[in-house]
Write a protein that binds this DNA or RNA. Structure first.
Length: 943
RNA sequence: GGGCGAUUAGCUCAGCCGGUUAGAGCGCUUGCUUUACACGCAAGAGGCCAGUGGUUCGAGUCCACUAUCGCCCACCA
C-alpha cells in the first residue's frame, strides 16, 4: 500500500491510534525485561495506587515521569523493569465498602442491605470487600494503560498477594525477635468514626478557634483552690491528678496535698513535674493520663492511674458518672454549664490551637490510652539517616534530604495495629488455655452491646468458639504473651493447648508498603528477581508521602535486605488547578485525566504534566496548557505528514540513515539535531525532563519545521541536487526516537508509518519502543554551516521585518540589494532561497563602484556579513528612518561600551575563562562592524 | 516553636556548573485561505528578575538580612 496524502489525516487523531498501539506493545512483550547478568538493570517499582482507586492527575503525573525514565532507559538498551501494583489500602477500602453496604449498593442479597460490618461478621464482610476489589480492582490499571505506562504487567503485584503477605509476616516476626516490635499501652490517636487506632502521620492538625477554660479545683481542706487551664473540660472526668512545676513559687507548697475533682468529687493528688510550663495558663495542669500523651507520661512518672473517660465511640464512659453516654462534644457544653453553675468556672479566654483530625474521615481524633503494637524506630532510623547523609541514596530535589533527616531525627515509635478487618492480620496468636488473662478480652460497644458499656468475655458468658463463629471483632486488651509465627501454630508451644486465638487486628497499610521494593521482587524467597533487580534504581513519588512511605521503605529495606531499596528518590510536585487550588472532589475542580486524554490525547496530557515545571514544584494545569501541548503534537504529526507524503511519492530515500552531508542546510540541521541529542542526554541524566522536552520541542518546531522544512520545500520543488529527502527522513526519524519517551503514541504511529513507506527495506526495530535512543554524534557539529545559516535566516527575517513595518502587501515582491556580502559569500549561493522565503525580486549583489539607490527612499539594514538596501516606491519617511538608525546606533554604542569596559578590565581577562574572553572579543568586533555600517547609512541618509 | 520552599512579561511558569542583549506557552497588536499543519504562518509590543547589603572580573543565578505568600513537622495543657 502506498501512503498518500489522503491516507494520512490532516489533524492527528489520538483516539484513533492510542489503544491500538498500546495493544501492539503488549503483544510484542516489550515491557517485560530480559534478565542479562552482564548489564545493569534500570528498575522502578510503581507506588501502588489504592486497589479500588481511580486515576487522578497526581497518578498521571507520577506515571508519566516514571514512564519517561523507563522508556528512555529501555531504548538505551538497559534491561528495564517498571513493576506495577496495587495497595489494599486498609482503612480507605474498608470505609468505602462499609459505606456502600449502608447504602445497599453492592449487597448481593437484600438481606444484607443496610448492615454494618459488625452485623455482617468478619468473614462475610471480607467477602464483600473482595467482591468489591474484583469489581473495581483493575480500573486504575486500565487507566494507566491509557496513559501509555510501559510497565511489566506480567509482574503486577498486590499487597495481599501471597508473596507480599509472606514478606509482611516475615518482617513482623523478625522485628519481634529483635525486640523492635512490641506491644504496649500508650496514648494513641483513636478515630471514633473509623473505630481504629491511627499513627501520628495519619492525623491532620488544623488550627481552630476555641477557648482556654480556667477551672477551679477546690483544695482538700477547703482552704482555697487551685485553678487549672484546659481546652478540653470534658476530659476532667478522667483526671487523676494535678501537676505544677516544682520550681513554681506560687504552688510549690501545695505539692503532696490534694484537690477535689469538680462535679465528681474524687480526690486528686497534686504532684510536681518539670513538664509543666510555668508561663502557660495558670501554671497548674490537670493530669488526664487516659486522654493526653503528656499527661500519660506525667501520670507514669507519679504512679497516677489511667482513667478512660471517653469510650471508643466518642461517648462518655461509665467513669464519667452522670455524664455517661453523652457524646464528648455534648458533654463539653453540659459540663461547662454545670461548672459555671457551681461557680467553678473561673473564666474562659479565646484561644487558637491545633486539633487533630482523622486523615481519612476528618472526624476529631481522640487521644486515648490503649494497648497496641508498635515498631520501635530509633534503631531503624539510624542507618536510614546514614545512607542519605553519605549519598548512597540521593533525593531529588536535593533540599528534601534535609526534610527527610529532620523528620528521622525526631522520629517516634510507629503504632502499627489497626482495629480493622481489611488488611494483613497481625501474625500473633494467644493461647486461651495457658493464659489466665484471656478471659479479659473486651468488646467495643459497637459489637452488639446496646448499653454501650464494656463487657468481658466472662460477663458475656460467651464461649470462645461461639465468638469465632460470630466472627465478632474482639478488641485487643490482651495481656497474654503472644506467639508470633509466620503461619498459624498447631498448638501452644507452652501448654500444648489448641485454643489459639489470632490477634484480631490488622497492620497499618503502610507496613506492607514499606516492604514494597523487595516484597514485590520475591523477598524473602531467594528469587531471581530480587537478586537481579534489587536494589531498584529510582523511587519516584509525590513529596506528600516522603514520611509515610519513602522513609519507611528505606528503614525496612535496610533492615530486611541489608541494602538500600533504591538509589534515587525523585519527588514530584502536586497538581493544582489553574488558580493554584488543590484539586478535590468537594471543590469540584478536579480534572479527570481520562477526560483530558479523550479531549486532547495522551501525548498532550503527558507533555502538559511534565514541561514548564521544575522537579518537586507544584504544577498548575489548565485547558490552555493542554491545548498548547496538543498543538505541538499536531505539529509533529504534520511535519511527519509532509515528509512521508514526499517520501511515498519518491518511493525511496537512499542513504537516509547515514546521509551525505554536503549541503549547508543539511550539515546545519544534522549538526543541530546532534547537539540537541547531547543536551537531552544531559538533562535526562539530571532528571530535568521538562528541560529535555523544551530542548527537543524548540528544535523540532523552530529549526526543523520553520526553517529546514520550508527550505527543503524549495529544493524539492526545484528538484535540486542533493535532494533534501534523505535528510528530512533522517531528522524526522531520529527526532521521533528522541521524543518517544515523552510522546510515546504519536512517535510510534509516525515511526510505524515510516517503516511502511520504506517497505521494510530498512533496518528498523519492530517498534520504536525498543529502537535505540539516538546517541549524539559530536562530529556532525558544523560551526561554518551554522554561521552561514544564521546569515541566511537573518537576511530573510530582516526583509520580512521591513515588509511588515512598511506595510508592503505580501504578494508584492520587494527589490533587495545586498552590499558588503564578502563576509557572507555563501549568501550568493542562497540567493534563490532568500528570494522565495522573503519574496523578493532576484537579489542584486552590489560591487564596489555600483550605483546605490537614493537614500531618501531606501530602507537599510546592517547585518553582520552583509548590508541590505531595500528601495521603496514611496518616499521613506526620512526622519523616521533616521530615528530608527540612530536607535540602532545607540544600541551598538551602548553594548560596545559595556563590552570594552569588561575587556579593558585586566582582572576580567586574567580571571575569566579563555573562551568567555574570546567570545566577548568577537562580539565587540562584530558590533564595531555593524556600528560602522549604520554610521555609513546615516551619513548617506543625511547626504 | 522548628524546618522547607516561592517571589522573573498581563497570566502560568522555565532559566542547568555564575559568563551574549533574561526565555517559553497563553493572552495582546498587525498582516496572511504561502498545496504539512488556522491545532497554522509571518512580524511585533511587553521585564528595576520582591527589597537591602555582601561575595566575585562578572549575580536572575551564590551568601546574609528584610518583606509578602505557601507548605511541612511539633505533646505547651
Amino acid at each position: 500500500m502506498t501512503q498518500t496524502e489522503n491516507a494520512i489525516p490532516k489533524a492527528y487523531d489520538p483516539g484513533a491510534v492510542e489503544q491500538r498501539l498500546y495493544a501492539s506493545w503488549i503483544e510484542g512483550g516489550y515491557f517485560t525485561p530480559a534478565i542479562d547478568p552482564d548489564k545493569e538493570p534500570f528498575v522502578i517499582i510503581m507506588p501502588p495506587p489504592n486497589v479500588t482507586g481511580e486515576l487522578h492527575l497526581g497518578h498521571a503525573l507520577q506515571a508519566t515521569l516514571a514512564d519517561i525514565m523507563v522508556r528512555w532507559h529501555r531504548m538505551k538498551g538497559e534491561p528495564t523493569l517498571w513493576l506495577p501494583g496495587a495497595d489494599h489500602a486498609g482503612i480507605a477500602t474498608q470505609v468505602m465498602v462499609e459505606r456502600s453496604l449502608a447504602q445497599n449498593a453492592t449487597s448481593r442479597s437484600s438481606d444484607e442491605a443496610g448492615l454494618t460490618r459488625q452485623q455482617l461478621g468478619r468473614e462475610r464482610f471480607l467477602e464483600r470487600v473482595w467482591d468489591w476489589v474484583r469489581l473495581y480492582g483493575h480500573t486504575i490499571d486500565e487507566q494507566h494503560k491509557r496513559l501509555g505506562a510501559s510497565c511489566d504487567w506480567t509482574r503486577r503485584s498486590f499487597t495481599l498477594d501471597d508473596g507480599p503477605s509472606l514478606a509482611v509476616r516475615t518482617t513482623f516476626a523478625n522485628l519481634y525477635e529483635k525486640g523492635l516490635i512490641y506491644r504496649g499501652e500508650r496514648i494513641i490517636n483513636w478515630c471514633p468514626r473509623c473505630s481504629t487506632a491511627l499513627s501520628d502521620l495519619e492525623v491532620d492538625h488544623e488550627e481552630e478557634q476555641s477557648f482556654l477554660y480556667h477551672i477551679r479545683y477546690p483544695l482538700e481542706y477547703g482552704d482555697g483552690d487551685l485553678i487549672v487551664a484546659t481546652t478540653r473540660p470534658e476530659t476532667l472526668l478522667g483526671d487523676t491528678g494535678v501537676a505544677v512545676n516544682p520550681g513554681d513559687d506560687r504552688y510549690r507548697h501545695l505539692i503532696g496535698r490534694r484537690v477535689f475533682l469538680p462535679m465528681v468529687g474524687r480526690l486528686l493528688p497534686i504532684v510536681g513535674d518539670e513538664a509543666v510550663d510555668l508561663a502557660f495558663g495558670t501554671g497548674a495542669l490537670k493530669v488526664t493520663p487516659g486522654h493526653d500523651p503528656v499527661d500519660f507520661e506525667v501520670g507514669q512518672r507519679h504512679g497516677l492511674p489511667v482513667v478512660t473517660a471517653i469510650n471508643l465511640d466518642g461517648a462518655m464512659s461509665r467513669e464519667a458518672g452522670p455524664y455517661e453516654g453523652m457524646d464528648r462534644a455534648e458533654c463539653r457544653e453540659v459540663i461547662l454549664r454545670d461548672l459555671d453553675a457551681a461557680g467553678l468556672l473561673d473564666r474562659q479566654e479565646p484561644y487558637r490551637h491545633s486539633v487533630g483530625h482523622c486523615g481519612r474521615c476528618g472526624v476529631v481524633v481522640e487521644p486515648l490510652a490503649s494497648r497496641q503494637w508498635f515498631v520501635s524506630m530509633d534503631e531503624l532510623a539510624r542507618p536510614a539517616m546514614e545512607v542519605v547523609r553519605d549519598g548512597r541514596i540521593k533525593i531529588v530535589p536535593g533540599h528534601y534530604s534535609r526534610v527527610y533527616l529532620n523528620w528521622m531525627e525526631n522520629i517516634r515509635d510507629w503504632c502499627i495495629s489497626r482495629q480493622l478487618w481489611w488488611g494483613h492480620r497481625i501474625p500473633a496468636w494467644y493461647c486461651l488455655d495457658c493464659s489466665q488473662d484471656a478471659t479479659h478480652l473486651v468488646f467495643p460497644p459497637e459489637d452488639g452491646l446496646p448499653d454501650g458499656s464494656y463487657r468481658t468475655l466472662r460477663e458475656q458468658g460467651l464461649a470462645w468458639s461461639e465468638l469465632e463463629a460470630r466472627a465478632m471483632h474482639v478488641f485487643t486488651d490482651l495481656t497474654a504473651q503472644p506467639i508470633v509465627a509466620l503461619e498459624p501454630p498447631d498448638c501452644c508451644p507452652a501448654c500444648g493447648g489448641s485454643r489459639l486465638y489470632q490477634d484480631p487486628d490488622v497492620l497499618d497499610t503502610w507496613f506492607s508498603s514499606a516492604l514494597w521494593p523487595h516484597s514485590t521482587l520475591g523477598w524473602p524467597e531467594d528469587a531471581e528477581d530480587v537478586r537481579y533487580f534489587y536494589p531498584t534504581t529510582v523511587m519516584e513519588t509525590g513529596y506528600d508521602i516522603l514520611f509515610f512511605w519513602v522513609a519507611r521503605m528505606v528503614m525496612m529495606g535496610l533492615q530486611n535486605t541489608g541494602d538500600i531499596p533504591f538509589k534515587w528518590v525523585y519527588l514530584s510536585g502536586l497538581i493544582r488547578d489553574e488558580h493554584g487550588a488543590k484539586m478535590s472532589k468537594t471543590r469540584g475542580n478536579v480534572t479527570d485525566p481520562i477526560e483530558a486524554i479523550d479531549a486532547y490525547g495522551t501525548d498532550a496530557l503527558r507533555f502538559t504534566l511534565t514541561t514548564g515545571n521544575a522537579p518537586g514544584n507544584d504544577l498548575r494545569i489548565s485547558d490552555g496548557k493542554l491545548a498548547a501541548s496538543r498543538n505541538f503534537v499536531n505539529k509533529v504529526w504534520n511535519a511527519a505528514r509532509y515528509v512521508l507524503t514526499n517520501l511515498s511519492e519518491t518511493q525511496n530515500a537512499p542513504e537516509w540513515r547515514t546521509p551525505q552531508l554536503s549541503h549547508r542546510h543539511d550539515r546545519w540541521i544534522v549538526g543541530r539535531l546532534n547537539q540537541v541529542a547531547a543536551q537531552v542526554d544531559r538533562f535526562m541524566d539530571d532528571f530535568l525532563f521538562g528541560e529535555a522536552q523544551r530542548e527537543v520541542h524548540d528544535f523540532f518546531w523552530n529549526e526543523f519545521c520553520d526553517w529546514y522544512i520550508e527550505i527543503a520545500k524549495l529544493r524539492l520543488r526545484a528538484s535540486s541536487e542533493p535532494s533534501p529527502l534523505p535528510i528530512l527522513v533522517h531528522v524526522l526519524e531520529k527526532s521521533m526516537r528522541l521524543m518517544h519517551p515523552f510522546l510515546p503514541f504519536v512517535t510510534e504511529e509516525i515511526w510505524q508509518t515510516l517503516k511502511t513507506v520504506l517497505h521494510g527495506t530498512q533496518d528498523m526495530a519492530d517498534s520504536i519502543v525498543v529502537a535505540p535512543y539516538p546517541a549524539p554524534e559530536p562530529s556532525t557539529a558544523d560551526a561554518q554551516a551554522e554561521r552561514e545559516m544564521e546569515l541566511l535566516m537573518g537576511v530573510v527575517r530582516a526583509i520580512r521585518n521591513v515588509r511588515a513595518e512598511f506595510k508592503i502587501p505580501p504578494n508584492r515582491a520587494l527589490t533587495c540589494l545586498i552590499e558588503r556580502s564578502e563576509a557572507g559569500a555563501s549568501l550568493r549561493e542562497e540567493a534563490a532561497t532568500v528570494e522565495s522565503l522573503a519574496r523578493t525580486e532576484p537579489l542584486v549583489f552590489l560591487a564596489e563602484g555600483d550605483a546605490r539607490p537614493a537614500a531618501a527612499s531606501t530602507v537599510s539594514v546592517a547585518l553582520v556579513g552583509a548590508t541590505l538596501l531595500i528601495p521603496l516606491e514611496s518616499l521613506v519617511d526620512t526622519a523616521a528612518e533616521r530615528t530608527r538608525l540612530e536607535r540602532e546606533m545607540q544600541e551598538c554604542v551602548d553594548n560596545m561600551q559595556r563590552l570594552s569596559q569588561r575587556l579593558g578590565n585586566a582582572e576580567f581577562t586574567a580571571k575569566a575563562p579563555e573562551d568567555v574572553v574570546e567570545r566577548e572579543r568577537e562580539r565587540l568586533a562584530r558590533l564595531g562592524e555593524r556600528r560602522d555600517r549604520v554610521q555609513e547609512l546615516l551619513t548617506q541618509l543625511t547626504a
